[in-house]
Amino acid sequence: MTEFFAYAAMALPDLLQGTVVTLKLTAGALVIGLVIGLPLSLLRVYGRKLVQPVCTAYLTVFRGTPLLVQLFVVYYGLPEIGVSFSRMAAAFITLGCNSGAYQCEYFRGAIQAVSKGQMTAARGIGMSRFQGIRHIVLPQALRLVIPAWSNELIAMVKYTAIVFLIAVPDLMNKAKILSSQNFAPIQTYVLVALIYLVLVGFLSLVLHGIQRKLAVPGLDAGMEGR
């Protein structure tokens, strides 16, 4: 056990460096996912019939294939047709587009969970459809989506763990280097698991706190994420 602690003390600085990259990736992916997912969900609910097949195709591809395939297509495949990204950019784009597909589904669910009467009442006091969406439906949907969105955040922390396969210097990448330098794979990955555990535990606590803070009576219908 003391051996493990000694190793941990030695490995931790490097791993924490990687953890920072992991967190940056998570944050970036969530933001990109939000920028893609929210408008996409609006298109899905309110958009014309014409755009639906495009939305469906996007969702099918990103929800129907492993993240790893997406990452390899973006990083190794796209250069073949002249579109190449740095490792970091490929990671952000892949994770972001993937999260966008999932976030779209969460937002869509939340928008549809807001009762139709809300829009009718909004139109009834003279709001345009756009105003109704912006001032009445979306504020409620955004609250309803918080639980699913929190789960997406947690899931994203874990999903970033594969980007080391294109040598992005995240937590897993540091672990891989350390484990082969020291011939200590088990200790290293147990340490990594502990870091993820702490990270996820901490984020869950924070998110729960935020959820309680933002709670509006009668508007807390839970929606689960992936």
Partner: peptide, 24 residues
Amino acid sequence: ASASTMEPLLAFGTAACFYIVLTL
């Protein structure tokens, strides 16, 4: 396949197709 044919897009794209069919 991607390494031997130097066609990663085809290789990984085809793999993606398999997964899409299965998930559908």
